[in-house]
């Protein structure tokens, strides 16, 4: 969604989020830089390790495509994993959380068409 924060700052925020929420920080992963690449994300979600969650820097790092995003949520919930978003201080672990999160995405996606000036 056009936002950029340096990777080391993202890592600091994620570490702090884990600390505050008593989550064990075990592995850091960076997505490939190509547009619309979610290869790393898919890899982590489908990994059959003991890892039980993924902490994102922001929820706006999820795919912009709604259908793709929904598939990710479903996959996460099916695998009984959780996803967290540090900047938004948000945890996704149920279908209700998906609705709440999607409301934010919906609003964000129409904002470029709304009045911007001041």
């Amino acid at each position: 969604m056009g936002e950029r924060v340096p990777q080391h700052i993202q890592n600091q925020i994620i570490r702090k989020f884990c600390e505050t929420n008593r989550l064990e920080y075990s592995l850091s992963a960076s997505e490939y830089a190509m547009k619309n690449s979610y290869l790393m994300l898919e890899e982590i979600i489908n990994e059959k390790s003991s890892m039980n969650g993924i902490v994102f820097y922001s929820l706006f790092q999820l795919p912009e495509n709604k259908i793709y995003r929904n598939n990710i949520y479903k996959n996460i919930i099916k695998r009984k994993k959780k996803i967290f978003f540090s900047v938004e201080n948000f945890k996704l672990s149920s279908k209700n959380d998906i609705l709440e999160l999607e409301e934010i995405w919906d609003v964000k996606s129409v904002l470029p068409s709304c009045y911007k000036g001041y």
């Binding site: 900047v87 409301e103 609003v107 904002l111």
Partner: peptide, 25 residues
Amino acid sequence: SLYSPYGDKKIGEFFKPITIRAASR
């Protein structure tokens, strides 16, 4: 107002939608 301009305090990180109406949905 949900669709008015945001400053540095953005939707999701600082604000959350609380009264989205049917037509907007």
